[in-house]
Design a protein around this nucleic acid. Structure first.
Lengths: 146, 146
DNA sequence: CTTGACTCTGGAGTCGACTCCAGAATGTAT
DNA sequence: ATACATTCTGGAGTCGACTCCAGAGTCAAG
């Protein structure tokens, strides 16, 4: 390993993504021009890792890989600027604000339910500590990870 | 049409979802016990439409269909309450707050870029109104197969 | 009662985002 | 030099969320 950089297995450990997923991102041009060793092993640096984490976060926020590629390009500090880029940035920001708003609404709704729920729990005895029909209904499938 | 309610085609128009997608949601138990006409046509009411719009919004916000089913159950105003439901609500709210935060960070980043971009645009002439290499890079998807 | 638009079911196909090989080459430790 | 883990490429398979039939039934209008 003459050139410096860490290889894909370590990146996988550090980001929690599978090796295959990382290679897949490269194929999708979300990671660019990764240098290689003589033998062809990919080499990553800390920037790449941040990039990968950014991709992960953006995915959780509901962006598709093509959209994320856009975001990555916009984020990059290239000297290139033009009205198109400005317009794209504005559009993205608007989208994001919209999502924040929607999440806020959703949070409100659930918070209201939560308060109601807590009130009821305090009011009643503890008969509810066993068996919950709602739970069964929810559960029936894998569980929810996150 | 003796029973009241609108049928799937209208719902499709009003929500922007395809007829198939709506049927798919029913199969996934996101829409429940829809009444039928004698002949077997599904009948929807305004609540169902709101439910469908809720599903759409939640999807844009990065929730999977199983997660949305959970949200729908939690949202429902059933008398059933218990500590498990409370805990689920709390967990969901935490998740949502996290996402709002992340979106906020992302917005910040893009807003910063936007300001920088606008400054540059004002400073320079209008040579940038033509040809933008960044744009090409972003766009390239419309053509060949993959 | 026929027409034509709409809906039904079941199943196959598509697309995005991976995951899982197989077989070969690379890198490292002894 | 040998062994063993790691990586490579290309391609097939999986899963979620639909989309697209085909063939049959439904329903309002004429």
């Amino acid at each position: 390993m003459l050139k410096s950089g860490i290889q894909i297995g370590r990146v996988s450990e550090q980001t929690g993504l599978s090796v295959d997923a990382i290679r897949f991102y490269e194929k999708q041009r979300l990671l660019e021009h990764l240098p290689r060793t003589e033998g062809g092993f990919r080499l990553f640096d800390t920037q790449d890792i941040q990039r990968i984490q950014f991709i992960r976060r953006a995915q959780r926020l509901g962006f598709s890989l093509p959209e994320i590629r856009e975001l990555l390009v916009l984020q990059r500090d290239e000297g290139e600027v033009c009205t198109h880029v400005r317009d794209l940035l504005r559009a993205k920001i608007t989208t994001i604000r919209g999502r924040i708003q929607e999440l806020g609404t959703l949070e409100e709704q659930l918070a209201k339910k939560l308060r109601k729920c807590e009130r009821k729990l305090r009011a009643s005895g503890d008969s509810h500590k066993r068996r919950c029909p709602v739970l069964e209904e929810i559960a029936d499938r894998g569980s929810d990870e996150n």
